[in-house]
Structure formats: structure tokens, C-alpha cells
Design a binder for these strands. Sequence first.
DNA 1: AGTTACACAGTGTATATACACTATACCACG
DNA 2: CGTGGTATAGTGTATATACACTGTGTAACT
Lengths: 146, 146
Amino acid sequence: MRVQSSCYCTNLRRAAGTLTDRYDEALRPAGLRAAQYSLLAQLSRLGSANITHWARYAGLDRSTMVRNIRLLRDRGLVEPDVGSGKTFRLSPEGQAAVERAAPLWAKAQEELRAWLGQADADALIRISRRLQTLDTPEEGGGGHAL
Amino acid sequence: MRVQSSCYCTNLRRAAGTLTDRYDEALRPAGLRAAQYSLLAQLSRLGSANITHWARYAGLDRSTMVRNIRLLRDRGLVEPDVGSGKTFRLSPEGQAAVERAAPLWAKAQEELRAWLGQADADALIRISRRLQTLDTPEEGGGGHAL
DNA sequence: AGTTACACAGTGTATATACACTATACCACG
DNA sequence: CGTGGTATAGTGTATATACACTGTGTAACT
């Protein structure tokens, strides 16, 4: 029997793990994990980006992004831009994977919204976004954080 | 500039990462990460537990728990029970670490509650707990999940 | 030309996590 | 006694994440 923790951090970590598993499962037919789809969708929006910018965009450490990109490159989903060896874009395969995954993602989103209810779904987004500003006091968090 | 994702999963994952970093920092003087403190506090409540029960209690995969326990054992924070080689308990060092960490954790909790406000803090716990039931339809989630 | 500063890429090492699989051990039933 | 089933522990392999550090290249200033 799972314990009911009163810790904000533990509860959020567990919830994130559970939701990640759910999205991983939803995206499995497209051959992508939730984190990978998120990265590819970001690159699709960016068009092309170097590691530093992409990492900032994703809210990840640069070293994490280096390794994430390596996996995506090894699978042929992203490729270096021809002109600059330092920026990346979606490969045709990556583009195809994003297109396969997009409706699966949308379905997972809708099912989760239905399960949570609109109010909790909205609160989830709102509070998650607030929490993301905890470590970036300069952008939108109000400066002094705690 | 960090993008504003509309994905429930991505937002929750980022929020969990940010909050984990915050708690890791708060607990650093005690020499524990957030995940480790969570596990030790659980074991403290359980008194003694085998891997399977502890993993269920923590909402983690058993294999994850095997590796988490190895780290805690290597640091001398938990030890096998004398009678049964299969159950673990806090070592005196583990007990001391939990006692060092507890007030740091409480301070982080209070600071976060103050920063979020009581309403959002309550919503965070409530919604996180609901989400944790997504993958365990038999306990409290309502059976059919989505 | 030299050096200093900065931006960017990359590596070493560690933690945290899961799925698929293997190993062990005990127990019950024929 | 053997065999098969359940419970438990553990390993192999992979992903995702961060911090601390190293490498590289360019531009700017003296």
C-alpha cells in the first residue's frame, strides 16, 4: 500500500513519474518516449537550434541536452544543419515521428483533461508553470523567489 | 527563453525537476538528496521492510529500489536486519541523517507553501495525489482510470 | 602577435528511474 | 520425492537528469 506523503516534492515527483509512464505508453506506437516527443516538438517549433538555446528552451541542463541529442541523432531523428555544424534540425524521419506522435499526444492530453476535470487540469498547468519559475528568478517569477 | 508548453506531462516533469533541485539544495547540509530523504523517512515510519514492500510504499519499481538501497547501504544509512537478511532498517547513521534533515525539510515545505500560497499548495498535493492513482486503478482511483 | 574573455561543445561521474529477464527459495500437492 | 507455482531478490540494459570540469574557437584589446 502506497503511503500518502505530505511532502510537496515527493508527491510531485511521483505524479510526474506516473504521468510520464502514461504518456510514454500513449506515444509507444510512434516509437517515442514522452521526453523525446517533447524535445522533438520543441525543435519543430524552433526550426533549428544549437544545444545551448535548445536546452534553455527546454529548461534542461546543457549536458543533459548533449546526451539527449546524441540519442536522437543515433536514431536519425535529428541532424546537424548543413551550413553550421553546431545547429540541429529535425530529419525527415524526425518530422515523420513527430507527425505520427502528435495525434497520440493530443489524445492523451484530452483523456487526461477529461479524467482530471477542466478545473484541476487548468490548475495543474498553472501551478506547474509557477513552480518552473522557482529556479529562474529573472524570468517571471517575481525576482526574489522564496 | 523557456517555452510555455501546453503539455500536462512536460509541465509536470519540469516542475518536478525544479522542485527536486530546490529540495536537494535545502537538504544538502544534511548530506541527503530529496529522493533519499523521502526513502529514509519512509523506512523510519515502516521501522523495517523488505524491498518489495518498501518499493510499493514508495510507489517505485522494485528494481529501482534495489539500486536505491544499494546506495543507501554503501553510505551506511540503512542496514539489513539481523534476524532476517531480507529486511532493512535505518542504521544509527541513517537515523541521525533523518534527524538532521527533518528540520531542513520542514523549512523547505513552509517556504514553498508561503511562496505558492495555501490554496495552490493544497491544490498541488490534491492533484498530485490524484495523478498518482492513474497507474494503480485498484487503490482509490475509481477502477477504470481513463 | 599575445593574451584575455566569452560562448559554446563535450566528458566524467553520479543519481534516479523503469522494463525485461534471471535466480533462488520455499511450499504445497500428487 | 519431484515438480510446479508463488514470492522475493537481483542483474542487464536503457533513458533522463544534473554538477563540475575540460576543450575549442573567436573576437577584442593592448
